[in-house]
Simulated scan of single mutants.
Amino acid sequence: MFRDITAFQKVYETRSITRAAKELYVTQPTVSIQIKKLEKELGVQLFKRNGNKQLVPTENANRFYRDSQLVLNSWENSLNHLVKKHKSNRIKCVIGASPTTASHVLPPLMQSLKRYLDYFDFQLVTGDSEKILEEIIKREIDFGIIEKPIVTHEIEQISFATDEMVLAGDSDNPEWIVGKPGSTQREYTDKYFNEHHLRPTKIIKVNDNDLIIKLISRNIGKAIISKRSITNSLLPYQQLTNDFCNEFYLINPKLPNSNEIQKLIQLVKTLLPQLRF
């Protein structure tokens, strides 16, 4: 309910579902569903569209906006009271992420989780997918967001997004940039080499995705890389076959370290498919 009210307030303030979704780091359909859900629960229409397709609040929306501010303020005051009372019981939560998911998934996820900073001490760590898995098994990390499927009876995993790999850079460039062994970038690069029977002689080995992009932007080499990584750049790229589509996974121990961590993981499972990244 509180998330629906927050969505309503953003739409009311911005007069736009698109802008509200962007500020909340969720998808437009998610906000639309939240508004429709509120309207159904309240039994009233909250917004109309004018000739310019701009959302116009109804009188019911104006009244509910004022009331909802009081409700959320009261809720925040209650939370603050509980936090002060139980300040010594803060819970440590370590979240691991592989390089690509750390860049694209963690920022919007933490935007959604920041309201829980009064209860949890979050620690974010990065590493390749195998390293994150290893640390979860050792109970050093509570849950992880990685780019490779895993097979082990100790871990639960769910896929929540697809990541398209592309060939970025000038296709006529003879130089290739490859990631470190074990990385997703290196795995798909080797796959491309094998499928096209390539044995490049000019290779630059790089262990950082951001550096790969900077090199390509200076016309130094080409690379197989996540399309998400170059979305906001002007780098040329070629689409590849469906075999070069990668999945993002949430992984966690089947038996989390505490009930609080288990509840947080369940929350993250509902948040991840809704995130805009």
Rank of each mutant, 00 (worst) to 15 (best):
R3W: 05
V11L: 02
Y12K: 01
I17W: 00
K22Y: 05
L24E: 00
Y25N: 12
Q28D: 15
P29N: 09
T30P: 00
T30F: 00
K36Y: 07
K36H: 13
K37A: 11
F47H: 02
R49T: 05
N50H: 04
G51Q: 09
K53N: 15
K53A: 15
P57V: 08
T58K: 01
Y65S: 11
Y65K: 10
Q69W: 08
L72A: 05
S74F: 13
E76S: 15
N77Q: 14
S78C: 11
S78P: 03
L79H: 06
K87V: 14
I95C: 02
S98Q: 03
T100C: 05
S103A: 06
S103R: 02
V105P: 00
P107W: 03
P108I: 06
S112L: 10
L113Y: 02
L113A: 03
L117C: 09
D121A: 14
F122C: 14
V125C: 03
K131Q: 12
K148E: 11
I150Q: 09
V151K: 13
V151W: 07
E154D: 15
T162P: 04
E164N: 07
L167P: 11
S171N: 07
D172M: 14
E175V: 15
V178I: 15
G182A: 09
E187R: 07
L198G: 12
T201C: 11
N207Y: 08
D208C: 12
I212S: 03
I213H: 00
R218M: 14
I220Q: 07
A223V: 01
A223F: 00
S226N: 08
N232Y: 08
S233M: 06
L235W: 09
Q238K: 13
N246E: 15
L250G: 02
N252D: 07
E260Y: 04
L267E: 08
T270S: 12
T270D: 10
T270F: 05
T270H: 10
L275E: 00
